[in-house]
């Protein structure tokens, strides 16, 4: 073990990664934490928007359908970097307009919150399409059985449609999550100190760009691998009741 710790001594190149200053390990981990926080928050926001969007597109009235269509079309057509920049200035502005109209004072929104809302809003459009397809793949007869037995539309959505569509949706949802964790890097342009921004700073200060970008890359990769495992587990659970294709023989 000692040789390993030795690598992180001050003086050694890797010493720059030490947790205590002048090492940048602490700030990097903090950046990683911010990345995870913003990604998790945006994923929740985006999934909620996606559920609304998907059910709205499928079962909503004409107005709801139109709104959902404009939302998904526009968001998916514009580069995310542009959207982030637009929304970064738009969201705080709108929040403050609402606050002022309520007779409250202006507030400064923390970048973390703005980032979460912006990324969640963008993700919601993609999530809408993933979930919509997954809902359409739920066998209609099973939904009809719910209706035939007097379940309410909400019970059917919650107890039949959602659990069934999950199996269809999880691969797509996993993809969106992986993209999202990387898209958080776009928030560097608005100065949010997530992992990428932090490694830029570390590189700029120490000139050891290669080291810090590699470190950031490894951390992104860890997120990806570990969360991929979790999604695989979740998918297996959601697919309970479906005979596996392996071992099917045919």
């Amino acid at each position: 073990m000692n040789w390993l710790l030795g690598l992180f001594e001050p003086g050694h190149a890797l010493g720059l990664l030490a947790l205590d200053p002048p090492g940048w390990g602490g700030p990097l981990l903090e950046g990683l934490l911010h990345t995870l926080e913003v990604a998790a928050g945006a994923y929740i926001v985006g999934t909620l928007l996606g559920v609304l969007g998907a059910f709205g597109k499928l079962y909503g009235g004409p107005l709801v359908k139109d709104i959902a269509a404009i939302y998904t079309t526009a968001v998916r057509a514009i580069p995310e970097l542009i959207e982030i920049l637009i929304l970064y200035y738009l969201v705080p502005d709108m929040v403050n307009k609402v606050l002022l109209s309520l007779g409250r004072d202006r507030i400064d929104l923390p970048p973390m919150l703005v980032g979460t809302i912006v990324l969640g809003f963008v993700l919601g459009a993609y999530m809408t399409e993933v979930l919509r397809g997954a809902i359409l793949a739920v066998p209609h007869g099973q939904i009809e059985a719910g209706r035939a037995y007097g379940m309410t539309p909400l019970q059917i959505a919650w107890r039949i449609t959602l659990p069934q569509m999950l199996a269809n949706a999880l691969p797509g949802m996993a993809n969106l999550w992986l993209n999202l964790t990387k898209d958080t890097a776009l928030l560097a342009v608005i100065g949010f100190n997530e992992l990428t921004e932090t490694s830029l700073q570390a590189g700029g200060t120490t000139k050891a760009f290669m080291l810090f970008f590699t470190a950031a890359g490894v951390l992104y990769m860890l997120i990806s691998v570990l969360s991929g495992r979790l999604f695989a587990l979740a998918e297996r659970r959601a697919r309970r009741g479906q005979p596996s294709l392996r071992g099917g023989g045919v």
């Binding site: 039949i160 069934q164 959601a238 009741g241």
Partner: peptide
């Protein structure tokens, strides 16, 4: 819904909830 709760429907293609 109340009426449906008192009528037991059996479908041609079973329509059991697969999950």
């Amino acid at each position: 819904e109340h009426i449906r709760q008192r009528l037991g429907m059996v479908f041609q293609s079973f329509n059991l909830w697969s999950h």
